[in-house]
């Protein structure tokens, strides 16, 4: 089982190519408000995570995900 921090670190690296504003990433970084990801870009990010952990992330969880930290928590739950 991977620790929450390790999920977080992977998410930081995975989203870096979409970090067009070069802002400093933290668990409270918002995917839309801070990183400015469009809905399509969010889905591209999700696909990277799915392929890496060999999981499927249901669309149903997305309304509860605002920050990288939220996503790390959800991915960890799905990968348990």
């Amino acid at each position: 089982m991977t620790d929450y921090q390790e999920y977080l670190e992977f998410l930081y690296s995975a989203v870096e190519t979409q970090n067009k504003k070069h802002i400093e990433l933290s668990e409270s970084t918002s995917l839309v408000a801070d990183l400015g990801l469009s809905s399509l870009e969010v889905m591209e990010f999700i696909e990277k995570i799915e392929d890496h952990f060999d999981i499927s992330i249901p669309l149903n969880i997305l309304p509860d995900v605002n920050t990288i930290g939220d996503l790390a928590t959800k991915v960890r739950e799905l990968n348990l």
Partner: peptide, 25 residues
């Protein structure tokens, strides 16, 4: 599908391999 209440998972467009991967999971 949003109204269904089911768990909703996307597979990559026109990609049967991705569909198979997700069914396997």
């Amino acid at each position: 599908v949003k109204l269904s209440g089911a768990e909703i998972i996307r597979y990559k467009h026109n990609n049967p391999e991705d569909l198979a991967k997700r069914l396997r999971r």
